[in-house]
Design a protein around this nucleic acid. Sequence first.
DNA 1: GATGAATGAGCTTTCATTCAT
DNA 2: GATGAATGAAAGCTCATTCAT
Lengths: 209, 209, 209, 209
Amino acid sequence: MELNEKQRLILDAAEKLMAEKGFDGTSVRDIAEEAGVNLAMISYYFGSKEKMMEAMFAQRSGYYKLQLESMIRDKELGPMAKMERLIDQYIEKLMNHQAFHRVLVREQMVSGNKMITDHIQELKKQNQALIREIISEGQKKGVFKKNIDLPILMMTLIGTISQLLTTQHFYKEINGLQDMPADEFQKHIRKKLSLHLKKIFHAILSNEA
Amino acid sequence: MELNEKQRLILDAAEKLMAEKGFDGTSVRDIAEEAGVNLAMISYYFGSKEKMMEAMFAQRSGYYKLQLESMIRDKELGPMAKMERLIDQYIEKLMNHQAFHRVLVREQMVSGNKMITDHIQELKKQNQALIREIISEGQKKGVFKKNIDLPILMMTLIGTISQLLTTQHFYKEINGLQDMPADEFQKHIRKKLSLHLKKIFHAILSNEA
Amino acid sequence: MELNEKQRLILDAAEKLMAEKGFDGTSVRDIAEEAGVNLAMISYYFGSKEKMMEAMFAQRSGYYKLQLESMIRDKELGPMAKMERLIDQYIEKLMNHQAFHRVLVREQMVSGNKMITDHIQELKKQNQALIREIISEGQKKGVFKKNIDLPILMMTLIGTISQLLTTQHFYKEINGLQDMPADEFQKHIRKKLSLHLKKIFHAILSNEA
Amino acid sequence: MELNEKQRLILDAAEKLMAEKGFDGTSVRDIAEEAGVNLAMISYYFGSKEKMMEAMFAQRSGYYKLQLESMIRDKELGPMAKMERLIDQYIEKLMNHQAFHRVLVREQMVSGNKMITDHIQELKKQNQALIREIISEGQKKGVFKKNIDLPILMMTLIGTISQLLTTQHFYKEINGLQDMPADEFQKHIRKKLSLHLKKIFHAILSNEA
DNA sequence: GATGAATGAGCTTTCATTCAT
DNA sequence: GATGAATGAAAGCTCATTCAT
């Protein structure tokens, strides 16, 4: 679905505000004002507030589509190297779209938006299927352990990033990083996350000593 | 703060509904009806909807106070055993108060409720200080590694549990467990989480191998 | 259904305004203002604008219930006398509740309010069944003609009154009665209608030369 | 006023929808869609929704202009025959333009459209003046009674047709004619009305017997 | 001449809260 | 202490109309 300039403005504003205040806490009036468009445009373009969010999810959920296929076929990379790239991809995706991710976290358990959660579940499923290929490859080559619980390992991958993302304010404070410039801080936690998660994945997956 | 019967009913109802629909998505009418009390009681007892939620947090946030002190002083337990107990305590706490935890996840980033987030940060800080004692003990005894990034390790601990908790529907489906009875499923994921997290903690903390 | 003072005020205001501007042409704001009550009271008491009108119809439709039963059993009255009383009853009913009747005329063909039109049809049916008894009695006694098309006769009865009622402004003008006081004019047209309709009924029903 | 193809389409659509839902219950969007034209065309061609209805009335009100003049001058016809033709003309006019007549009934009492009601009143006046000529002729020839209240007789004429027209659904049901084909039913009620109204006019007007 | 985009005003309804008792 | 009634504010949405092209 192609979006025009106004529609983009609206979804950006909605994403920003809903990341802060949630779907119900954000009024279409607020969104219209933030986007600098007329209030009626939201109904005009999307039909309703609800459908506007669906459009936002349809637009953004591509974020969760990783570039896995080409990497998986890459003969140059060993299974563990692939997993490491995977980790970095997840970190990049989630950190680069923090606002949208917050919206997702806030609304993912809402009963109403069945359509949306189903779509996201589908993406997760596809991702997991591809990742399972890497693991199978690693197990065939003997570099990965036999018994690997991928779903729960994914919980750790996404859960850790997500937790840091939603509590970064607290993380800053506890580590005395309040004065670190924002972009430097972002780099800092990406690096931290990357090292930490790779260590964990290594421990869980690797067959060596 | 002591709560009378009606106040308890109200907070229980609020917790249940807000876990599903969030703070803004839940009206005081809904809460009053779910609690079986008069609509005006909520303002009457708590002053406002906002203050009602603050009361709920004040009440429930004790959930996050772990029984760490006595355990830490326990001379019978080694540092790793203590960490394992810690993991199980977190799992128990979060899983036993899923509804409240969902409310927390949904609302933790709300700008307005500074008071609440501050309170939770304070609890987390206290917990981390105690846990740091265990780690120092392990390091002194030479059973733990020297360089340990506790804050990020906590992100993995809480993040993994929280992620499973908020996406358990998806987890059920992907693992073909839709027909497993609810309480059995709860036991199942606690066990899974416990083993998984202990493996991770072992890999991150332990000096052996 | 019992109505309290406020509810009565609301329905009276709604009736008045809808008689002038119709259902869709009358806003709940207008009604609230006319009734001197808060805007939200309408939803509070009736649930919605639509349901408010249903309540109005439920309240008012009793107007169309004539006092026929006792009259029919009256042994003192001949069939034609009964029909004449019937005519006067209809004139009284419709003229005494002009505002409501206008609402009815304006909305009776609305597709949506099935419930309401059904109710009114039911009342009409009941009335016609009773009137048919009078006619049968007249036919048995030989004072009424054999072939009488009651439904179309009722069209003339109600149609004539209704037409005068909805075009009384024009009637006034064409007859040069603009200066006649309102209540006198009302009396005038009732008398006119009464004589006119009785003449018609006599011609249609009576068996005499 | 000459109408082009699109304007005709618009007025036809408007007539159809307003007959069902009234002026306020019909949006210009609905009309544009029903007519298959662009939304902006309505304002473009007619200036406004209100003026569009005025155009519709200007167009349609010719319906109420009867072909009376030539008939009145017809030397072959007696006064009663003329009145009978008049009745049939009215039946034809109203039944052939039911949709427009419903719009008229629904909106005839609207305060705002002074211009429209005035126009219709003018037409009625002209009609009545012509009809009065017929009656005078009949009275001169001694075939009509002396005291004849024409305005109220017209109420019966128009009121009866109009009442049947607006409650034909009910009439169908009460007479068990739900299964009669639509056009046959239309013929049926025209015949019924014609006979019935002629009987009434005869009784009111004729000097014989 | 014709139209998709845009808009300000208004709609009905629901909200959290307060009032009178 | 407890509650049904009441209320101002704000919500999401639709309206007839106008604008830029």
